[in-house]
């Protein structure tokens, strides 16, 4: 058996992740987090926030809650069940930052926490801002 055949053999016998079940769990988890967001939005609007401002308050609240859930060791349990459903919402982004920050605390606040804070979430900001600059150039020269 050469290496190519070996690779194929290994692939062929790999147990597949139960994709339908995983997708269902992701759907439920992601949906629930967004539903929570919508309930919060409704709450903020009822309290007098404008429909324009409410989304920002919702996102900030979710970032806060995700951090607390991460700290008490609950968010990774949600993620274990929900997979992509816990990854894609803003809570997944906050979880990545909170988890990196907390675990690196042993190397100090500056060289541990601060250095590693964006270890996982960094690429999102790097590619997001870069894409927005490219969009800005296009928008500026060619109009919207």
């Amino acid at each position: 058996m050469d290496n190519k055949q070996y690779g194929e053999y290994v692939k062929s016998r790999e147990k597949r992740s139960p994709i339908v079940k995983n997708c269902f769990n992701a759907f439920i988890t992601g949906g629930t987090i967004c539903l929570a967001g919508e309930l919060l939005a409704f709450g903020y609007e009822s309290a007098g926030a404008s429909a324009e401002d409410a989304p920002l308050y919702v996102l900030l609240t979710l970032i806060l809650l995700s951090g607390v859930f991460t700290g008490i060791g609950f968010y990774d349990k949600i993620a274990k069940f929900g997979g992509g459903g816990a990854l894609v919402p803003i809570t997944g982004f906050a979880n990545a930052m909170a988890a990196s920050a907390t675990e690196s605390r042993t190397e100090g606040l500056v060289n541990g926490t601060a250095v590693n804070l964006y270890r996982i979430a960094g690429p999102v900001i790097v590619f997001g801002t870069s894409a927005s600059v490219i969009y800005g150039v296009i928008y500026y020269f060619f109009g919207g």
Binding site: S17, F27, G84, L87, V88, V124
Partner: peptide, 27 residues
Amino acid sequence: AFLIGGALCVPAQILIDKTKLMNSRIL
């Protein structure tokens, strides 16, 4: 909000299961 938010997470799960893509690439 529930249905659309949930549905938007499904492609990420498919990528996780089918491609072994790392989370940060998906995000």
